[in-house]
Write a protein that binds this DNA or RNA. Sequence first.
DNA 1: ACCTGAACACCGTTCAAGT
DNA 2: ACCTGAACACCGTTCAAGT
Lengths: 233, 233
Amino acid sequence: MKTKSATATKAELSRDAVVDRALALADEEGLAAVTIRRLAQEFGVTPMALYWHVSSKDELFDAMGDRFFAGMRADDVASTGPWPDQLRRMIAAIVAVLRAHPAAAHLAAERILQCEPGRDIAERALGLLRDAGFPTSQAADIAGHALQTALMLVVQQPGEPTVAAAERAEIMETKRKALASLPPERYPNLIASADALTNCDDEDAYLMGGIDLFVAGVQALQPAPSATHRAAR
Amino acid sequence: MKTKSATATKAELSRDAVVDRALALADEEGLAAVTIRRLAQEFGVTPMALYWHVSSKDELFDAMGDRFFAGMRADDVASTGPWPDQLRRMIAAIVAVLRAHPAAAHLAAERILQCEPGRDIAERALGLLRDAGFPTSQAADIAGHALQTALMLVVQQPGEPTVAAAERAEIMETKRKALASLPPERYPNLIASADALTNCDDEDAYLMGGIDLFVAGVQALQPAPSATHRAAR
DNA sequence: ACCTGAACACCGTTCAAGT
DNA sequence: ACCTGAACACCGTTCAAGT
């Protein structure tokens, strides 16, 4: 045993260990709790010790964002079937990795083009859309919307730093009551939807519905095949 | 003249004046620059003076969020025409108010159901969707997605605190070059899209395209009219 | 190579006190 | 009613110094 006198048997200090702990801390107490000083404390070390492994807090956040894509291979989403199905699988794959750390998910969106696995999936998405007939600029817009849609499905409503699930339920219940006690003649639909707006009993169905809505929109906007495209077949 | 020795002839200290200045400061230097101490300094006053007008920074942020909806009347989006057009106009109206302060726009999303004009527009959106045949829970999901879509169209890519337009262009140019110099055989689509991904020459067209995509998706998912609905006509 | 100590310029907020 | 002063417990980060 060569463990020092840390609060618990913490891992050795290293760049990866810091990123790991930062993501775990975001999960537990929200992204606002991720602090150089707090992390140092968790490792039983001086705040400045972290600066050897990570050059600034911004760089730490970037590394956290990159971590989302680390285990992701573009080939995981099989490149078979009609393009809408492929697109759906790609978005679902992104949703899946973002769900690992919802409180830090928005860090991933900014990093997708800065890390290799992210670029691979972006490359495929763009190819898919251009092959479907979308002009380059629209394909770029749609790919960006796809990423943002995945993000929005994961982060949901609760106030930025994502509080623990326990008090989150409490907050939602308060909101539901506030909606339910609105004047019925003025807000009949809000009252009828109070339940639906404040709790999500089937998260998987919610996510799939959001993805379906997006993909259906892309399909509806697909340009009609041009003469040259037809000739190529 | 009863102006004190402030940096400039600032407005009198009041709740509204603080919210005004906070939004202006977010526009100029990003949301991270909005600080109790910084605001106090701008008003030529002690930090604690602000606590008479606003009970905490969180409450200030809430008030900033509410301000977005202040000038918005649900009747502004005329309730005529087919429901997809109405929905499109509602989203466009929200996009319009969020564009006033992009750096603070995400504060608005959390407040829509906590302020009266926000509730009015939410009520109409829910009514619209339920009348179109969507079940209550799906209508609630779609209304939420509509708001998040408006938000995502406005905030775009640049790293959270939204820097000034000047250095934003510089950052984008750096990213474009990074994309353009990627290995061409591996990332042909990213290279072809480097321009489209890093600059937006026609922002209005981008916004309209995003709204159209969303509305087209909702239309595609509209349930077929049931027998009871048909009977009601 | 890796970590510490002291210091600087910031935060939000409480509490008692002034006018 | 409205504002100040002093204080507390936090931040990120630099720089020189230790081992």
